[in-house]
């Protein structure tokens, strides 16, 4: 446990020793902030117009649901931006060790591969949670000036973290395959994107393939979280993929020893 923690601590610190973490946080905050502003403006404009319209026809003013019309969409946006930003977090985790030859240190000290993989995965996840903190301030604005329901916001964040966990585990695996960080980032992004779009094929297929493709789609599982529903099948989906990614990473770094 102490060794896993040592890896976690070192990796997490390393993000901040290079400009990478700051660049990622800045870009993520900028883009999510901009999109939040746009969504909010659109929402305010729409509700204003609808209210005016209702007044004209002497009807009761319509009720606007912040959760339904703003927060839900915003979580979708956050998930989409995460798709692009997470591979840049995971790319260096193993590729850099390979390039610098520090894997030789890890392989010859009494630390297990599982401890290394777990430590690195947790560091990636922790940085992702740090990334999400500024968006929580945006959400807080809604609570200050409006009264959205709290639980869907909470479930949305749980969903985001689970989604991030899946992308990080898969990105980690890609990073074990190469010593080139750019390739690790592109590979991680491609694999994540594949999970994102795989459900689209379901529309044009039938029979047994359709439910399989639908199940594999990472988006389908995310929608419920954004609506405030925590369904155990969706949680299971993310956990399975996370464990799968970590398992592949583990096998991948173990296999380096056996490659002849």
């Amino acid at each position: 446990m102490r060794k896993t923690l040592a890896i976690f601590e070192k990796e997490f610190k390393s993000f901040f020793y290079s400009p990478l973490a700051y660049v990622i946080i800045a870009i993520f905050t900028l883009i999510t902030g901009y999109l939040f502003y746009n969504l909010l403006s659109w929402f305010v404009e729409q509700s204003f117009m609808m209210t005016m319209q209702a007044q004209q026809y002497r009807q009761a003013p319509p009720k606007f649901n912040v959760n339904l019309h703003l927060i839900r969409g915003y979580f979708g946006t956050l998930a989409f931006i995460s798709l692009f930003i997470l591979p840049t977090i995971t790319m260096r985790l193993f590729a850099e060790e390979k390039k610098q030859g520090t894997l030789e240190l890890l392989y010859t000290t009494p630390i297990t591969e599982l401890q290394v993989v777990t430590g690195k995965y947790l560091a990636g996840l922790a940085l992702y949670i740090v990334l999400l903190i500024p968006t929580m301030f945006f959400m807080a604005l809604l609570f200050i000036y409006g009264d959205p329901e709290f639980l869907p916001v909470l479930s949305g964040y749980i969903g985001l973290i689970l989604l991030g966990s899946t992308f990080i585990a898969l990105g980690l695996f890609i990073s074990t395959l190469t010593e080139n960080q750019i390739i690790a980032a592109i590979g991680g992004f491609a694999l994540s994107l594949l999970l994102w779009i795989i459900g689209w094929g379901a529309t044009f297929t039938g029979g047994t393939l359709k439910p399989v493709l639908e199940y594999l789609s990472i988006l389908v599982h995310f929608e419920d979280f954004a609506q405030g529903v925590i369904d155990s099948t969706h949680v299971a989906y993310y956990l399975i993929f996370t464990i799968f990614g970590l398992y592949l990473s583990l096998k991948s770094i173990e296999s380096v020893k056996w490659r002849t």
């Binding site: 040592a6 610190k13 390393s14 610098q100 894997l103 030789e104 000290t109």
Partner: peptide, 21 residues
Amino acid sequence: PPLYTELTVKDYLMFVAKIKG
């Protein structure tokens, strides 16, 4: 030498000490 170039000497040795148990 397997060094993490972004760490300071002290931090690096601290890390190695931890993983060496």
